[in-house]
């Protein structure tokens, strides 16, 4: 996901980041996250916002040891593709688990966490991440 140090941008995106709001295509029924105006599957411009289920499973994951800007000092951390109960896939950080304990297929649940600070005196960005269900 492209990152810019923009307060208005984070403000615009808050609902989808805070509440796991994805988009459902009224034409082909695909569900995507985050919500967007054009369906990435069929190209229709007929998407409606939909709040996604909070539980899912780890499809695949990666350990980030060289963090991008804004995530310094947080390494190592996990980024995973999560398949939610309705089949929608979400790219998210996976927290509260050691990298060596993560397994594909592991059941996970959404939590609300800090993403990053734009600067020590800047806005703190919050949003959804996932943690192991058990």
């Amino acid at each position: 996901m492209v990152w810019s140090e923009s307060v208005p941008r984070f403000w615009r995106e808050r609902a989808r980041k805070y509440r796991l709001v994805g988009g459902r295509c009224r034409k082909c029924n695909s569900i995507v996250y985050p919500h967007r105006s054009v369906c990435p599957h069929c190209g229709a411009e007929n998407m409606e916002p939909i709040e996604l289920p909070r539980r899912g499973k780890v499809v695949t994951f990666s350990v980030v040891r060289h963090p991008p800007r804004g995530f310094e000092g947080k390494e190592p951390f996990l980024v995973a593709v999560i398949e939610l109960e309705n089949g929608a896939r979400v790219l998210s950080q996976l927290v509260d688990v050691h990298p060596e304990d993560v397994k594909e297929g592991m059941e996970v649940v959404a939590v609300f966490r800090r993403y990053r600070e734009q600067a020590p005196n800047g806005i703190i960005e919050y949003g959804i991440k996932f943690r192991p269900l058990k």
Partner: peptide, 11 residues
């Protein structure tokens, strides 16, 4: 955790 504070816990 590194990404938790009083706000996230409250939520």
């Amino acid at each position: 955790g590194l990404d938790e504070d009083s706000l996230t816990m409250a939520f």
